[in-house]
């Protein structure tokens, strides 16, 4: 475990906690894309199938449970909670995320580290995670005004994968045979998707103005 990866995990954990905090305290999910949250729940469910078969470390197991639990509870809140679901603007959150799932599944069947169920599911979860933020970014473009917590949530989510890229570079140079092209390319694509959001986020933060994304 190197510092980059630990920072990445903490940033990721913090992004999910920020979101849960927002939904739980103000009982609102305005500006949050349910589609992105559902995609993340699928990402974790398919990524952590080895939860009970491969024991890596207590940290690893606990973090997997926290990610699974938080992503499923966010989906539950947005779908079932009587107050929260009212603040979900479903006519704005229209990205057809099903169109993301099938191509990722086909790609995982074609490109994977080993053609076994676990490995294909693992590759699928990486491809899906790379594009899972798209419905959220589209929703932000549409609703234009971004409240602080949503902006922080997306920013932290982008930062987590950026730390992971530093982690992969570090491990490449310090560990023999550490090569995971599937992870690296998916992670890079994922971070690039945040590119323009980061630009506008820093821009608004520097000029201390409200974050506005261009139409």
């Amino acid at each position: 475990m190197n510092m980059f990866r630990f920072l990445g995990d903490m940033t990721h954990l913090f992004s999910v906690l920020v979101l849960l905090l927002k939904i739980h305290t103000i009982k609102s999910c305005a500006g949050i894309s349910l589609k992105t949250q559902e995609l993340y729940a699928i990402v974790f469910a398919t990524r952590y199938l080895d939860l009970f078969t491969d024991y890596i470390s207590l940290y690893n197991t606990v973090m997997k449970l926290v990610y699974l639990g938080s992503s499923l509870s966010i989906v539950w809140y947005m779908r079932r909670h009587k107050l929260v679901r009212r603040s979900y603007d479903k006519d704005q959150d229209t990205f057809r995320h099903h169109f993301l799932i099938l191509p990722c599944l086909i790609l995982a069947l074609l490109i994977n580290e080993k053609f076994t169920f676990m490995e294909v599911m693992w590759a699928f979860s990486l491809y899906l995670e790379a594009v899972a933020i798209l419905p959220q970014l589209v929703l932000l473009q549409r609703t234009r005004n971004i409240d602080n917590l949503t902006g922080q949530y997306v920013f932290l989510l982008g930062a987590y994968r950026s730390f992971y890229i530093l982690n992969w570079i570090y491990r490449y140079f310090t560990e023999v045979h550490y090569v995971h092209w599937i992870t690296w390319i998916s992670g890079l694509v994922q971070t690039l998707l945040y590119g323009d959001f980061f630009y506008y986020y820093f821009h608004s933060w520097k000029n201390n103005e409200k974050l506005q994304l261009p139409a």
């Binding site: 990721h12 491969d54 890596i56 580290e113 045979h177 992870t183």
Partner: peptide, 10 residues
């Protein structure tokens, strides 16, 4: 090798 496929990252 086996550790190649063991996924130790989250």
């Amino acid at each position: 090798t086996d550790d190649q496929t063991t996924k130790d990252e989250l």
